[in-house]
Structure formats: structure tokens, C-alpha cells
Design a protein around this nucleic acid. Structure first.
Length: 557
RNA sequence: UGCCCGAUAGUAUAAUGGUAGUACGACAGAUUUUGGUUCUGUUUGUCUUGGUUCGAAUCCAGGUCGGGCAACCA
């Protein structure tokens, strides 16, 4: 049985199989991977999958991973993104061996282009992008070369040099690789490899006015760094023949590219372009809005790096399109938070109760975390005036309502059993207060009452409670796959994805809350302190609710 | 109509020619001073048609369906 289990745990994803095979055959003594983001947006949970894969492989097989910024398009890139990306990767728990930039290699890549020209394998084309597109043919008809393809090596060398010198305006000329205009693979029909952009680059400044295209920078950068396994997503499969062609013609280190399916998740979108729209058009407060699937959003929401790594492990790596149920992510964070979160009591919508046979006040003890005895107990003040959750009382309860109702008994968590004797109502018939009596011999820890009650409620003492703001989040979209719905994905935004309770009542101990601690508000969910907190108001984000079988039961009814 | 990739319960993911398993979800129950946690059980699956084989999710062929590719984006 145990052996079977071990066997199962050992099952490898297809990339691990490739790596193990390469290692077994002695193709490489050690592996080198890289995580290659373009600094034009914040990282999201889909990137986390890639980060865990690339860094995880190196960790597992004793190799290293570089962080390399694919910064070949200066008009969309920014240092703000570079910084956020580094912070996110670090926060996820990974250390890169080297921090590199494709722009570090611009001189070498320029040299590669010259070499291609010298071999007669690249030419300067004066056509407009429209002309180039129209000459490219279609998937069923071959493309054709234009007269510029006939330029001599010397002429091309001179022209390319002039491009670099800034003698031409944006779009006036491009450098193209001479591959195969009749290839059924469109990527091979003499792709553009250099274009003119008189733009300021976040690292190289104004040194360059020509920039290599992705296809002429990415693989070359891999090669320069001696990356053994260059792992990317499926949309680059058709680029691989070009990747290999450059390696062969340039006679450089043969990195190999392998592709896996990107992560999609229900009730969210997973493209930097769409996420940027949500930010720019103020549907969310920023890239780190806790409803965003960005790593910074998840971090602010209260997700832990452990939970995200666990998630990445559970979803695996494969080549088929997928749409992962967000409930799996929620399972992963609950799993971790249940183990580490400190328990606190917070009442969101208060209903006051007065215990008529109790006088004075006392300090009670309650577990910090029943899952971890080492965390010990905390002190919670108790008195004759308490708040309970309004939804924990019903005047006319349905069957199986294990909470408070006229004449019914419940336990107050870590305190006493109480019974509801009397309701006090306002002029409209709304219950404003409950009069209860407690059973003195039912005190938690030394219950002598012999009484069994079905329900246990959280509570706070009125005079000791502190006020906090609570922000509860729900899924950002109303539909499972907003990117694949008719029309604009933004039409499917969930208007109720943020609910704010500006004054919830919390046990006083919560005033010592720390940013790096996680809390479970009993029966409510997992929460963390938000950066919007100030001296006079603490703000808490709900990371995720607790599983709630009662709510489910009610929905059915 | 070209080329490429893929298809296993609702969603994911294993099984690498030899009993289709696991997780999440759902459902039912036990335990519980959180309707949480934990535990137990139930349910649902190899896209299709042929072929090879003693034996096929796996190998082969045809089909179907889904995705990608014709940016001076990555």
C-alpha cells in the first residue's frame, strides 16, 4: 500500500521526464532554466505556475534558474514592473542565480544579425508592415519575396548599420531573416527580426534605436546564458522551428524549447492586457487589488506563498487546454491557513444580548489555534452585555437551526451556555436586544451542567469590543470564463465583488494584529491586516470564507 | 481548405501494452465547545470508428471536436 503510494507520488510531468532523460543520457551534467517575464505588467497566478515550474525543476534536479527580463519593446516596458516582478518572485520563495536582461545582450544580438547578413540569411526590407503582411501569403498559399530580398550582403550590411546609426525613421526599414517564404509554418516566412523604434529604453536609455524582435532575442538570450531547458507556453510551439533555425545558423549553444499549457482559472481573466484594462478603467483599485489574480493581489488578499506553491503542484503541468476551478485554489489556502491562523472572535452585524443573571466581568481563556497546541491560549473579556451575530438569532427558526431562538440554548464559545428568555423589539417589530440567562456551572473547561447544546456562537463583550473595518471579497466575474463570453469581458464583472463593513466588533486582543500574521475570525473566515489600516482604524481583508455547509443547506431549501 | 498541438468523471491530474487510480467539487454519515477541522462512505470517466495484440487509455490508420499560427507584441 505504502509502496503504491510512493509510486504515485513519483509520477513525473512530461518536462520532468525530459529532464531526467537528458540527465540520464549525460546530455547535461546540470540543468539551467530561466523565468523570462516582459516587464510590461504585474505577474499573475499563471506566471506563478511558470515560476514554480522553472525554479522547481532546478531545485529538484540540482540546477539553477535565472531571472531574465525580456525587455525588447521599450514602449510598453517600465522599471515599476521590473521591481514588482522581482518582489513577487522573491515572495513566492524563489532565488534566482542571476538577474539578467535581454537588453544586456543587445550588442551580441546585433552581432548575430550581422552574422546572418554575412551568411546571406538576412536582408533589409524597405516595405511597410502592410506590404510585408500582404506578401506573406496565407496558410494555404505561399508567400513571395520582394525585390529587397535581392540586395547584396554589402548593401545589407551598410543599410543595417545605417539603421543602427539612426538614419531612418520608425517603420522605414526592417531586417528580415531569409528562411522560407513557402513554409506551411507562417513563422518561417522571412520573419522580421529587427525594427526601428526611436524610443527610450528603461535600461539602455537612448543608446539604441533598433530593437530585436522576440524571436530574435529570446532564443539567443537562452543560448548566451546556456539555458538547457527553455520552457514556455503553447502559443510558441510554432516558433520552435525558427528558434532551432537561428541556433543552427548562428552556431550557438543549443538550448531546447519545451511548451506547456498556460493556466486558466474560473471566474477570472488571465491576460496582462485584460488585467491592465481593469486597472486603467478603475474596475479595481490597482494591480494589487485583493480581487485580482495577480500575485500582488493574492498576497494582499492574504494568500501565502506556501498555498500558491501547493496549488501549482496540484494543477500539474501538461499540454492540454485547461480551466482550473478556483475552488481548488481556495482549498489550497484554507488548507494552509487552518494550520497557522490565530483564532479571534469578530461580530460583523451585531445583536446585543444582556445576561440578566450575570454581574461583573471576567477574563476567559480560548485556544489560539486548536490545530496547533503550541500556540497556547489567549484571554478574552466576558461581561453581562455581549454582541452576537444577528444572523445567529431567529425568532421563528427552521428545523435544524442550531443557534439562538426564543427559549433555545446555545454555547458561547469558550464561555457559558445561555438561554434566550426574552426579545426586545422596536416600534417596527425588529428585534433590538435579547435578554438571556446563563448556566454558571457550564463554564468552558469545567462544565458541570450536564447540558448538551448543538450550537456554539462567537461573541464579543460590548464594553471591551474594538471597531475594525472588514472587506469581504467575492469572485470578480459572474461567469466561469469571462474571456470566452460574447462581447466585452468587462460586461461580466460581478458588481458585488467587494463588500465593506466599516465597523465590525472585535475582541480587544485583535488590536495587536500584525501584518504577517493570519487570523481566523471564528465561523467567518480567514482574514489578514490590510495596508490601508491606520492608527485609528484597522482594516482586514477576507482571504477566503470557511466552508459553510449550513449556508449550502439553506440555499437548497 | 495549410501547418502545428491536444482530447481520461463536473474540474483537474495519474496509469508509459497487463485490475482505470488520486485530488478538488457534489452527496450521505460519524466526530466536534467553530454548521470549521478530522474521519468514513457514495456518485460520475478513457471523443469516435477500425486495425495490431492473448491483452489497448496507451501502439497504428481514418474521422470528430477543441486550441494555436498569417503583429515592425511577447
Amino acid at each position: 500500500m505504502n509502496d503504491i503510494k510512493k509510486e504515485e507520488e513519483k509520477s513525473l510531468n512530461f518536462i520532468e521526464e525530459i529532464v531526467e532523460e537528458d540527465l540520464r543520457q549525460g546530455k547535461y551534467k546540470t540543468i539551467l532554466t530561466r523565468f523570462p517575464p516582459e516587464p510590461n505588467g504585474y505577474l499573475h497566478i499563471g506566471h506563478a505556475k511558470s515560476i514554480c515550474l522553472n525554479f522547481g525543476l532546478a531545485l529538484k534536479y540540482g540546477g539553477k534558474t535565472n531571472l531574465r527580463f525580456d525587455d525588447t519593446n521599450p514602449v510598453t516596458e517600465d522599471v515599476e514592473y521590473v521591481e514588482s516582478i522581482k518582489e513577487d518572485v522573491r515572495w513566492l520563495g524563489f532565488q534566482w542565480a542571476n538577474e539578467f536582461y535581454a537588453s544586456d545582450y543587445f550588442e551580441q544580438i546585433y552581432g548575430f544579425a550581422v552574422k546572418l547578413i554575412q551568411k546571406g540569411l538576412a536582408y533589409v526590407d524597405d516595405s511597410s508592415s502592410e506590404e510585408i503582411a500582404s506578401q506573406k501569403g496565407t496558410p494555404t498559399e505561399p508567400g513571395r519575396r520582394n525585390k529587397f530580398a535581392e540586395r547584396t550582403v554589402e548593401e545589407n550590411l551598410q543599410l543595417f548599420s545605417d539603421m543602427r546609426e539612426g538614419k531612418y525613421k520608425d517603420g522605414e526599414k526592417v531586417l528580415r531573416a531569409r528562411v522560407d517564404m513557402a513554409s506551411p509554418n507562417m513563422q518561417l516566412r522571412d520573419p522580421v527580426i529587427y525594427r526601428i523604434k526611436h524610443a527610450h529604453h528603461h535600461r539602455t536609455g537612448d543608446k539604441w534605436c533598433i530593437y530585436p524582435m522576440y524571436d530574435f532575442a529570446h532564443g539567443q538570450s537562452d543560448s548566451i546564458e546556456n539555458i538547457t531547458h527553455s520552457i514556455c507556453t503553447l502559443e510558441f510551439v510554432t516558433h520552435r522551428p525558427l528558434y532551432d533555425w537561428f541556433i543552427k545558423e548562428l552556431e550557438i549553444f543549443p538550448s531546447r524549447q519545451y511548451e506547456f499549457a498556460r493556466l486558466n482559472m474560473t471566474f477570472t481573466v488571465m491576460s496582462k492586457r485584460k488585467l491592465l484594462q481593469l486597472v486603467n478603467e478603475k474596475f479595481v483599485s490597482g494591480w494589487d487589488d485583493p480581487r485580482m489574480p495577480t500575485i500582488s493581489g493574492l498576497r494582499r488578499r492574504g494568500y501565502t506563498p506556501e498555498s500558491i506553491r501547493f496549488f501549482a503542484e496540484k494543477i500539474g503541468v501538461q499540454k492540454r487546454d485547461n480551466l482550473i476551478d478556483v475552488s481548488l485554489l481556495e482549498f489550497c489556502i484554507r488548507e494552509h491557513l487552518n494550520k497557522i491562523a490565530l483564532r479571534k472572535m469578530v461580530v460583523f452585524e451585531p445583536l446585543k444580548i444582556v445576561i440578566t443573571n450575570y454581574t461583573g466581568e471576567e477574563i476567559l481563556k480560548s485556544e489560539n489555534n486548536p490545530e496547533d497546541a503550541d500556540t497556547g491560549h489567549r484571554e478574552v473579556p466576558f461581561s453581562n452585555e455581549l454582541y452576537i451575530e444577528r444572523e445567529d438569532f431567529m425568532e421563528n427558526p427552521p428545523k435544524k437551526f442550531f443557534r439562538l431562538a426564543p427559549g433555545q440554548k446555545v454555547r458561547l464559545k469558550s464561555a457559558y451556555i445561555i438561554q434566550c428568555d426574552e426579545m426586545i423589539k422596536d416600534g417596527n417589530g425588529n428585534v433590538t436586544e435579547l435578554r438571556c440567562t446563563y448556566l454558571p456551572e457550564s463554564k468552558s473547561g469545567g462544565d458541570q451542567s450536564g447540558m448538551k447544546v448543538q450550537g456554539t456562537l462567537h461573541w464579543v463583550s460590548v464594553k471591551h469590543a474594538i471597531h475594525i473595518e472588514v472587506r469581504s471579497y467575492d469572485r470578480l466575474f459572474r461567469v466561469e470564463d469571462p474571456a470566452n463570453e460574447e462581447g466585452d469581458f468587462k460586461e461580466y464583472i460581478n458588481p458585488d465583488s467587494l463588500q465593506i463593513i466599516s465597523s465590525a466588533y472585535a475582541e480587544p486582543g485583535l488590536k495587536n494584529a500584525k501584518f504577517d500574521e493570519r487570523y481566523q475570525f471564528l465561523r467567518k473566515g480567514y482574514f489578514c491586516l490590510d495596508k490601508d489600516s491606520s492608527e485609528d482604524k484597522m482594516v482586514f481583508n477576507r482571504t477566503v470564507t470557511l466552508r459553510d455547509t449550513w449556508a449550502k443547506e439553506q440555499k437548497k431549501g
